[in-house]
């Protein structure tokens, strides 16, 4: 098992994504120590100041950087940063927003299906919710990638489906299932007395649901909904396995362009980790704040 460190990742480079950079094995023919000494010798005096930069990006990088000065690697990172940010991370955000939009929309329908009076609709909705909730995201992504055609023809118009659209669809499926559960849970959390009170006022079931129950649980659905958005955002790097040009794909390409020095790995991946952290952490804090605020009112 230890020898399994293939230079190509099957399923990607054989799948038509020829321009996808494939990470070469970083165990170089020369031992790493050789690089190190050369680097150490060439180290200019201002190294220390540059080292402060990754410290701000990711505190843990410090002990890695401590023994391994990677001045050039960091300056390479700084060169690539705007590109990674604008073409990479922004794309992750866009994918997550689209997937969230679609997932929320379908999830609400599925969730309302789960509380339907119609037994058949109820069963079907329950089945799809459980199916997509309990299967791994990556498996769903692969299935969508393989099962969806490259293009669809509607009324004679050929609409191509790019890989990133497939990724959006693949990611929206588990979101849909989880939103469905949130909707169901929120509706069930409204005391039955509310239903009874409304029924006794001769409201129809539709009216009760839309006018009385849903407005009440809307607030309660916000924190878990935001939580799932954060989880979704953190799942977007999986798209790189499908060849979508997002931050991890581009980071690999950038490292490729910088001749794949192993020293590039820590700063580049730290940068990606840091970006996600700074994007998701505030969301997590707000979620926690809202959770606490709304929980008091129940």
């Amino acid at each position: 098992m230890a020898s399994k460190r293939p230079s190509t990742i099957p399923g990607i480079n054989r799948h038509g994504n020829t321009d996808l950079p494939v990470l070469k094995p970083f165990a170089p023919s020369q031992p790493i120590a050789f690089h190190t000494s050369a680097w150490l010798a060439n180290m200019p005096a201002w190294t220390g100041f540059v080292l402060l930069l990754p410290l701000m990006l990711w505190p843990f990088a410090s002990h890695a950087a401590g023994s391994f000065t990677m001045t050039d690697a960091f300056s390479a990172l700084i060169r690539w940063m705007p590109f990674l940010l604008k073409s990479g991370f922004l794309f992750n955000v866009i994918i997550s927003l689209f997937a969230m939009l679609i997932g929320t929309f379908l999830g609400i329908i599925l969730g309302l299906g789960q509380i339907s009076k119609n037994r058949f609709i109820k069963r079907i909705s329950w089945f799809f919710t459980q199916l997509f909730r309990n299967s791994p995201w990556l498996v769903l992504l692969f299935i969508v990638l393989l099962a969806f055609p490259f293009e669809v023809t509607i009324f004679g118009v050929i609409i191509p489906i790019p890989d990133w659209m497939k990724a959006v669809i693949g990611l929206s499926l588990p979101i849909m299932a989880n939103i469905s559960e949130i909707v169901r849970g929120a509706v069930l959390s409204v005391p039955t007395a509310q239903w009874e009170a409304a029924e006794s006022l001769a409201f129809s079931r539709q009216q009760i649901l839309w006018r009385i129950i849903l407005p009440q649980c809307f607030k309660r659905m916000i924190p878990p909904w935001m939580n799932w958005y954060a989880i979704l955002t953190m799942a977007t790097p999986l798209c790189s396995l499908l060849g979508v040009e997002e931050i991890i794909t581009l980071s690999r390409q950038a490292m490729e362009a910088e001749n794949n020095h192993p020293e590039l790995l820590v700063p580049f991946y730290s940068f990606a980790l840091g970006l996600f952290f700074f994007y998701c952490y505030p969301i997590a804090r707000v979620t926690m704040y809202l959770e606490r605020r709304y929980s008091v009112k129940i």
């Binding site: 843990f60 990606a272 996600f276």
Partner: peptide, 9 residues
């Protein structure tokens, strides 16, 4: 840190 960064990365 581990909660707010993608497990894949």
């Amino acid at each position: 840190f581990f909660r707010n960064t993608p497990p894949y990365v």
